[in-house]
Amino acid sequence: MAVSSRNRLFIVIGVILVLALAFAGARFMNVPQAESRAANAWGEVERQYQLRAYLTQDVIDAVRAVNPAQVDLVTALEEKRQQVIRYPFDARAPHRDEQFRAFMATQDALSVELGKVLDLMQLYPERRAQPPISSVLARLAQSEIRIVMARSDYIRAAKTYNRLVTNIPTRWFAGLVEHETVPMIVSFDMSAPAKS
C-alpha cells in the first residue's frame, strides 16, 4: 500500500511539473510576439520622426515667407533636417543605449529649432494666420501629436517585452533560446536611466 501512495505522489509531482513547464513554455511564446510588437512600434517612432523631417522643408519655406531675415534659423533648420534624414534606421537601437541616445539627440536638436520657429511665429500673428502658413503649422502640430502617440505605443510595448525577458520563469526560457536577451530602452528622457 505504501508503494501505491508513493507512486501517486510521484505522478502528482510529475503532473505538476509538466503543467508548470507547459505554463512557462506558453509564457515564453509571448516573448517573440512581444519583441515583434515592440520592434514594430519602434519602427513607427522612426517613421514619424522621418516624416517630421520631411515636413520641416515646408516649415523652412514658411519661415522665409514670414521673416526672410531669419537666415540663421533657416540654416540651422536645414542642417538639423539633413542630419535627421541621413541618420540610419536601426531596428536594434532600442537595445543599445548609445545608439538610442544618438538617435534621440539628433531628433531633439531638430525639436529645439522647430521650437524657435513656433516662438518666431508668435511675433507675427497676422502672417501666421495666412492659409499657407497656418496650414504648415497645423501639419507640424499633427506631426508632433503622431510622434507622441508613436512613442507612447513603443514605451508600452517595450515595457511588456522587458517584463517577459527579465521576470522568472520566462527569463530562463528566453535565455535558453537566445543567449543575449537585452531589455529595450523605455525612456525618451535623456537625463533618466534608459532601461526599467
Rank of each mutant, 00 (worst) to 15 (best):
187 S>V: 02
10 F>W: 14
160 T>H: 13
42 W>T: 03
125 P>K: 00
59 V>K: 02
46 E>D: 15
73 L>W: 03
175 G>D: 10
189 D>H: 04
68 P>R: 02
9 L>A: 12
9 L>S: 14
6 R>Q: 15
191 S>F: 13
11 I>E: 08
76 A>N: 12
153 D>C: 09
1 M>H: 15
137 L>T: 03
118 L>F: 11
108 D>F: 10
194 A>D: 08
64 R>K: 06
3 V>E: 15
28 F>N: 06
12 V>F: 14
3 V>D: 14
135 S>P: 04
173 F>V: 11
117 V>H: 06
29 M>L: 10
107 Q>D: 05
44 E>M: 14
109 A>T: 10
99 Q>R: 12
148 V>I: 14
136 V>T: 03
145 I>T: 15
3 V>R: 15
75 T>M: 08
146 R>C: 08
113 E>C: 02
10 F>D: 08
107 Q>V: 01
13 I>W: 11
76 A>L: 10
58 D>L: 04
113 E>N: 03
77 L>W: 06
148 V>F: 10
176 L>H: 02
142 Q>R: 15
36 S>I: 04
158 A>E: 01
31 V>C: 04
91 A>L: 07
13 I>G: 06
150 A>C: 07
131 P>S: 02
191 S>T: 12
116 K>N: 12
166 T>G: 05
51 L>W: 07
192 A>M: 03
186 V>L: 06
157 A>V: 10
143 S>D: 11
59 V>Q: 00
56 T>I: 01
190 M>L: 15
9 L>H: 04
12 V>G: 04
149 M>R: 15
141 A>P: 00
184 M>I: 05
15 V>F: 12
188 F>E: 00
104 M>S: 06
79 E>D: 11
155 I>G: 09
178 E>F: 07
98 E>M: 09
100 F>D: 00
28 F>W: 07
146 R>I: 00
8 R>E: 14
37 R>V: 03
112 V>G: 03
88 P>W: 09
9 L>Y: 09
12 V>L: 05
48 Q>N: 12
70 Q>T: 00
74 V>E: 01
32 P>S: 00
98 E>D: 14
175 G>S: 08
62 A>T: 08
17 L>T: 09
102 A>Y: 01
72 D>I: 11
167 N>M: 14
163 R>Q: 13
157 A>I: 02
138 A>Q: 12
149 M>L: 15
120 L>T: 03
126 E>Q: 10
167 N>W: 11
152 S>N: 11
146 R>M: 08
149 M>D: 15
136 V>G: 05
62 A>I: 07
177 V>D: 01
57 Q>V: 08
116 K>V: 09
179 H>A: 11
108 D>W: 04
175 G>P: 00
120 L>R: 04
95 H>P: 08
168 I>F: 13
70 Q>N: 05
7 N>S: 10
19 L>C: 11
132 P>A: 06
187 S>L: 02
92 R>P: 06
181 T>A: 13
138 A>C: 05
116 K>E: 01
192 A>C: 07
189 D>E: 09
148 V>C: 14
113 E>T: 12
148 V>L: 14
160 T>S: 10
108 D>N: 11
131 P>A: 05
190 M>G: 12
34 A>G: 07
77 L>Y: 03
124 Y>H: 04
41 A>I: 09
139 R>A: 10
